[in-house]
Write a protein that binds this DNA or RNA. Structure first.
Length: 277
DNA sequence: CTCCTGACCTGAGTGC
DNA sequence: TGCACTCAGGTCAGGA
């Protein structure tokens, strides 16, 4: 479900409300997420101060006191809800973190994930570089390391198609199945094209399109197609701005031709075969 | 090494 | 209503 803009949206919402709140306790309802939640999470997280959250790829990282990090991944269907004291636990809520802020007000945030492809972890900051989920991540697409030179190095003599390439989290983080289609449409590049056929100007278009699409989506709270909600319950409005994803049989907004739907690595891929070459 | 497939899991939608 | 089937925003492990 959530790609970079959705995770960023959640992160921004959390950073507005969490600032230096203290964890009173965590209630865990299911430990069998993508991996089993650590046995001592309840004990270790208790009384920690939650500092400013940030995002790395599709991971939410919340630094705490005593130099620990709380890591949350939303998988395919995860959401985080901000909840008041009266909140009733509902189906697929897997944990609920109860905190007290600096004004001594109590609230909670709740992790809900029907498919349980998500995960939560807690580890010392000294282990962050070698964390099994973080150590292989590629560059941030909105950062300064996402350059033509970097892409040239990564595509050299590679035969895979560009769509799989930009979705590969070890190369660029944060792009998933929706934004891959949107980015390649904006860049006018056919998703099936092999990466070693791409010239400098194509790489430039991909970089520009990526930054444009992701930033624009962040500005409207991400894309809600089925599950994604901002933590305050609001929808993400980028769904209304999608140009190709889910638009087979619609006309391309650039050239008027019909949008195609194909499968690439078993994932739905939308593109215009006329203007994406 | 590179790249793709299958598997993990639940729910929503479709067609008979 | 019920059943069988497909599909869904992710990504790791294993194998070609």
């Amino acid at each position: 479900m959530p790609e970079l803009p959705e995770v960023e949206t959640v992160c921004l919402a959390l950073s507005k409300i969490l600032n230096n709140s203290r964890v009173r306790d965590i209630e865990i309802f299911r430990k069998d997420l993508r991996w089993n939640v650590k046995e001592n999470l309840e004990k270790d997280l208790k009384e920690k101060i939650l500092k400013k959250p940030y995002r790395r790829g599709k991971y939410i990282l919340i630094p705490t006191s005593k130099k620990y990090i709380l890591l949350i991944h939303l998988g395919m269907s995860g959401t985080i809800k901000i909840a008041s004291k009266e909140y009733k636990v509902s189906k697929h809520d897997h944990f609920k973190i109860n905190v007290e802020n600096k004004e001594n007000k109590f609230f909670s945030f709740v992790y809900n994930d029907p498919r349980r492809f998500g995960y939560v972890d807690f580890f010392h900051i000294k282990d962050i570089e070698k964390h099994f989920l973080l150590k292989k991540l590629g560059v941030e697409p909105l950062g300064n390391d996402f350059t033509i030179r970097y892409l040239q190095k990564k595509i050299y003599k590679k035969s895979r198609c560009i769509k799989n390439f930009i979705m590969d989290q070890s190369i660029i983080v944060g792009i998933g199945n929706i934004y891959a289609s949107e980015i390649l449409h904006r860049a006018s590049i056919n998703p099936l094209r092999t990466v070693d056929s791409l010239k400098k100007e194509h790489l430039k278009s991909i970089i520009d399109a990526t930054k444009f699409i992701l930033n624009k989506s962040i500005n409207v709270g991400g894309t809600t197609i089925r599950n994604h909600l901002q933590p305050d319950g609001k929808l993400g409005y980028f769904a209304q701005k999608l140009q190709v994803y889910g638009k087979s049989k619609h006309n391309c907004n650039k050239c008027g031709n019909m949008i195609n739907l194909i499968k690439i690595s078993n994932r739905s891929t939308y593109f215009c075969s006329n203007c994406q070459i």
